[in-house]
Design a binder for these strands. Structure first.
Length: 841
RNA sequence: GCCGGGGUGGUGAAAUGGCAGACACGCCAGCCUUAGGAGCUGGUGGCCGCAAGGCCGUGCGGGUUCGAAUCCCGCUCCCGGCACCA
């Protein structure tokens, strides 16, 4: 190794070979040096009013679980590279970071290790922040937030109160998991294998309790249609569309013999003449009134069984699973046929969808058909398929769901379905039997958690006044830190007397605080606004600053949040807009998901199986720059895949080659004005590489971007070997500067070091992204493939814009082609300029 | 069952209608070295061939096209999501 670092660029010097330890690429030394310098200089501080078009790049903030694993690196490095490139392109880029700091693991650690959740959480945050520094991420740490601080969660409470005022937050009974052993409600995440309590291992059941909800269903339609306009992966949009589950149909009114009205939702109101029985969800409120004394025992037993039913059973597609249900003994009247039809209960009807009751049309619905066959209920044919004779209900083996003509359907007989459905609905409306309706699968968002480590819900219960919201000036309702974490099976808040007992803000009498805390998805539903003014004390965020930065231009994160987090965040944004705090309704304009990094065996990386890969060890062995490159080079970023440590040596070699190239040939002198083919080739290579790297980054193709960098270095070395004097031309110097600039987003440390060694002013990360002359990306002559009948027979060098006739003439004269033609004359010649010529004989 | 994504050398992959396998790992050979788990050079899809060269080849079967990894139809396997939604 040799170096000339003492010699300023442009000055002649002896090619003295001075062995110098500092010349060797030593990532440990380089990375520590620059990391400290950047921190000292606050290099990544973002000013709200800095020049340049704003760009808000955001990565889903992590849960502070302890340490960053390799998957975190994979997720964070890509947007970091992208954000760095945009900054070099002149944008004012906001790339903040924080911690999703409330949640179950902290509480479990508290119970297990007798350490307070707050201490555990902040210890982890400190560790992880160090790791981000090590990664070389371009994060403005002055904006860091942790959702478990009162400064942050008081605004969760503030939003809750605003939503309560607007009727968007409400209390209602809801079926939740209940552990009879621990005498407590469990979050869904705490229920293992369908119905096992995470804590004590006993079987859990569903139980009705009063819970807090956010009325996200009010926004169902908007969430659905505004989602279509977003630049998000198609599959995420599809998942959200399916989750919202819009379905068009009608609400029809049936009457029960008890005198109660029973409404049902159906997408096939045309088949109401075929409704031969009705089915209620076991939990339906009318079941009790409807059940006759003789059926009482059966019904009660069935309801009990349905309650115990595990998720696994419910989700099973087992063909052996049969339709179950029980007759209530009660009857309803079909509103169009006036027939008396039996009312059953069955678990295939869900309380949470539609009205929790259906009209059963066994002829036209497969589930109803199976039910009718199982319990020997009547089936009536009401649709005749086109160009066929009628179907005989006695012999049919499955429901008929196809198109046809209505038969035995009173005044609607003869109508074509589905074409004339609107007329049928109109008739039902005119005659008062029902009306058109749209139903959604989306349910309201249950935000209550019977846990300690979360945002206290700011209401109190007073014997006199009932439920009373905590006045805004009394926020935050602080989570007491002196809670007891013995595993009693209850939230520590319930037994925390000082927290529990308070004074009613309305009458001043004794009151009891709500002990439920909020789902942590509330925290993550608005955190990106907080980054724009993280120290604002009088509002969740400063309106003007938020207006400047939001919406987020690019949001990166895992596909696992495709539904919940992203849907809640969209909902919150719309609520914030309706509260007048912002003027847009969609939070994230562009979304990109990384794939999942699996363990080397292709299985899921899990802590419990010891399959995690520690980035710290890899950094110690190869440097953060090499690890960054390696992760980006594994494959397409959105695909993920099994982890593989072997390839990292290739990235290390690449960095060493680039390092050697710049340090050994970067000091000049650059005096030659060589007009050789090599300098032209060099200029073309440089232009093409700038284009490739930029285009690949624009398209989030990090793996091919890295390949372009590697090829650039390899090609520079080849040119140098072919023409040793090339390194003394100004063109060469320019090529090296370009190399360092192109490397800066991906390998920030070594790029800074090389920039410094080139004698360029600090910092490489404040330089402009290199530009190129598009004319140079075109070669003067290109190798054109010559095919005969689609098989490659020769290659010729031609100008890419050569006229067709000229090209044909030249190619047909080639000896190999003459031989391949064997005397046959060409029938057609296909010419794709700059690519190929295909001669068809 | 439904909806996505995918199947290309020994491995990760590239090529989205025009030279299949860029680039990297690994492997082989050579150079350098006291040494190499360092560096450099060359080779590396399969088959036939001393070679020149030829044939075959992108999960399977068919189709469209001068030309298909790429588009269309059918099948198959793997991964992910949803799942009685009336």
């Amino acid at each position: 190794m040799a170096t000339r670092i003492e010699t300023p660029a442009g000055t002649a010097s002896e090619p003295a070979i001075v062995p110098d330890r500092s010349a060797r690429y030593d990532p440990a030394v380089i990375e520590q040096k620059w990391r400290e310098r950047w921190q000292r200089d606050d290099l990544y501080r973002v000013e709200d009013d800095a020049p340049g078009e704003k760009f808000y790049a955001l990565t889903m903030y992590p849960y502070p679980s302890g340490v960053l694993h390799i998957g975190h690196w994979f997720a964070f490095v890509a947007p970091d590279i992208y954000a760095r490139m945009l900054r070099m392109r002149g944008h004012n880029v906001l790339y903040p970071m924080g911690f999703d700091a409330f949640g179950l693991p902290a509480e479990n650690a508290a119970i297990r290790n007798n350490i307070h959740p707050a201490i555990w959480t902040f210890d982890n945050i400190a560790k992880m922040r160090q790791q981000y520094h090590q990664m070389g991420a371009m994060i403005d740490w002055s904006r860091e937030l942790a959702t478990c601080t009162p400064d942050y969660y008081r605004w969760n409470q503030w939003f809750f109160l605003r939503m309560l005022e607007r009727g968007l937050a409400y209390r209602a009974m809801g079926a939740v998991w209940w552990c009879p052993q621990d005498q407590t409600v469990l979050a869904n995440e705490q229920v293992l294998d369908g119905n096992i309590c995470e804590r004590c291992g006993s079987e859990v059941i569903k139980r009705d309790l009063e819970q807090w909800y956010f009325r996200i269903t009010d926004y169902a339609e908007e969430l659905l249609h505004e989602g279509e306009t977003l630049d998000w992966p198609e599959r995420v949009k599809t998942m959200q569309r399916n989750w919202i589950g819009r379905s068009e149909g009608a609400r029809l009114r049936f009457t029960l013999e008890t005198g109660d009205a029973l409404e049902v939702f159906t997408t096939r109101p045309d088949t109401v003449w075929g409704a031969t029985f009705m089915v209620l969800a076991p939990e339906h409120p009318l079941v009790a009134r409807l059940t006759t004394p003789e059926q009482q025992a059966d019904v009660a037993a069935y309801i009990e069984q349905a309650r115990r039913q595990t998720e696994i059973e419910r989700l099973s597609t087992d063909a052996a699973r049969s339709r179950t249900g029980v007759f209530t003994g009660g009857y309803a009247v079909n509103p169009v046929t006036d027939e008396r039809i039996p009312v059953w209960i069955a678990d295939y009807v869900l309380m949470g969808y539609g009205t929790g009751a259906i009209m059963a049309v066994p002829f036209g619905d497969q589930r109803d058909f199976e039910f009718a066959r199982a319990f020997d209920l009547p089936i009536r044919a009401i649709v005749q398929p086109p160009d066929e004779t009628g179907i005989d209900p006695a012999t049919m083996t499955g429901a008929y769901t196809g198109p046809g003509i209505l038969v035995d359907s009173g005044p609607m007989t003869g109508k074509r379905v589905p074409e004339e459905l609107p007329e049928i609905i109109a008739w039902l409306e005119e005659t008062g039997r029902g009306e058109a309706e749209v139903t959604y699968r989306l349910r309201d968002w249950l935000i209550s958690r019977q846990r300690y480590w979360g945002t206290p819900i700011p209401v109190v219960y007073c014997d006199e006044c009932g439920m009373v919201p905590v006045p805004e000036d009394q926020l935050p309702v602080e989570l007491p830190l002196d809670a007891e974490f013995t595993p009693t099976g209850q939230s520590p808040l319930v037994s925390h007397e000082a927290f529990l007992h308070t004074i009613c803000p309305q009458c001043g009498g004794p009151a009891r605080r709500e002990t439920d805390t909020m789902d942590t998805f509330v925290d993550s539903s608005w955190y990106w606004f907080r980054y724009t003014s993280p120290h604002e004390e009088h509002a969740p965020f400063d309106r003007e600053t938020a207006a400047r930065w939001t919406p987020v231009d690019l949001y990166c994160g895992g596909i696992e949040h495709a539904i919940l987090h992203l849907l809640y965040a969209r909902f919150f944004t719309k609520v914030l807009r309706d509260l007048g705090l912002i003027d847009h309704g969609e939070p994230f304009l562009r979304l990109r998901n990384q794939g999942i990094i699996l363990a080397e065996e292709g299985t899921k990386m899990s802590k419990s199986r010891g399959k995690t890969v520690s980035p710290d060890d890899l950094v110690a062995a190869h440097g953060a720059d090499a690890l960054r490159l390696h992760l980006m080079y594994l494959g397409p970023w959105d695909q993920g895949g099994p982890w593989n440590a072997r390839g990292i040596t290739g990235m290390e070699r690449f960095i060493r080659r680039a390092y050697g190239l710049v340090t050994e040939t970067g000091a000049g002198p650059f005096v030659g004005s060589m007009a050789s083919t090599e300098t032209t080739a060099l200029a073309r290579l440089q232009a093409k590489t700038i284009q490739r790297v930029g285009d690949d980054l624009d398209e989030f193709q990090f793996n091919t971007m890295v390949a372009a960098l590697i090829e650039y270095v390899n090609e520079l070395m080849r040119l140098h070997a072919r023409e040793p004097d090339l390194i003394h031309t100004p063109r060469w110097r320019s090529a090296l500067e370009t190399l360092v600039l192109l490397m800066a987003p991906s390998t920030p440390y070594v790029a800074e070091e090389l920039w410094d060694r080139l004698g360029m002013p600090y910092s490489v990360h404040h330089q402009s992204w290199p530009s190129y002359d598009p004319a140079l990306t075109q070669e003067a002559t290109v190798e054109v493939v010559v095919q005969v009948n689609g098989k490659v027979r020769d290659r010729v060098l031609l100008p890419p814009d050569l006229a067709e006739e000229e090209a044909k003439a030249r190619v047909l004269a080639q000896p190999k082609i003459v031989a391949a033609l064997g005397g046959n004359s060409p029938r057609t010649v296909i010419y794709v300029p700059g690519r190929l010529i295909n001669i068809v004989v």
